[in-house]
């Protein structure tokens, strides 16, 4: 039985709230991370508009697997220099996506600090990356993907599929 993604979003927002600097910017990673970041942004009432990243151009497996066919535009609608930034993703696994996201953010400027908030940490890290906030840790066998999906009514749910 997988946890309720909407409940996890709410819990994640509450864990972020204490002591959050008012100029903090959230950056969601396409596609699931953006959905979670939208929830957090609304729940926390942040003034800085939400940023969105598609890290396809920064992935380390480009020379092996090429470009994903449907790349979205990255959109960072705020000044990055000297701002605290929280990267938001749905499922943290190897850490390679987060490495790519950090590289991309630094091409927009030099943030004051960068933190990471994730809905699910499924372990299996291949890089020294550790989230500051995790809604839930969950063991998932290798060879299976844990995915966040958005239904017609906009409700977020988690689903396990074979990779």
């Amino acid at each position: 039985m997988l946890p309720d993604a909407e409940r996890l979003c709410g819990a994640l927002a509450e864990s972020l709230r204490p002591g959050l600097p008012p100029d903090t910017a959230l950056v969601g990673i396409h596609t699931g991370g953006v959905w979670v970041a939208e929830r957090l942004h609304a729940a926390l009432g942040l003034k800085t508009p939400l940023g969105r990243l598609d890290v396809s151009f920064y992935r380390d497996d480009f020379s092996r697997s090429g470009l994903h066919p449907q790349i979205k535009s990255s959109d960072i609608p705020f000044e990055v220099n000297d701002r605290p930034i929280i990267i938001v993703d749905d499922v943290l696994y190897t850490g390679r996506t987060i490495r790519a996201a950090m590289n991309e953010i630094f091409d927009y400027g030099r943030p004051a600090r960068v933190d990471l908030a994730v809905l699910i940490d499924r372990g299996g890290r291949e890089l020294p990356i550790c989230p500051r906030w995790t809604a839930q840790a969950l063991q998932v066998e290798p060879g299976r993907n844990l995915q966040l999906e958005r239904g017609e009514a906009g409700i977020l749910t988690l689903r396990l599929i074979d990779a």
């Binding site: 151009f57 535009s73 091409d107």
Partner: peptide
Amino acid sequence: APFTEVAEREVKKLPL
């Protein structure tokens, strides 16, 4: 389409 956005960044470079 997503490459057009790169021109607006401080660092107009991608590592591909």
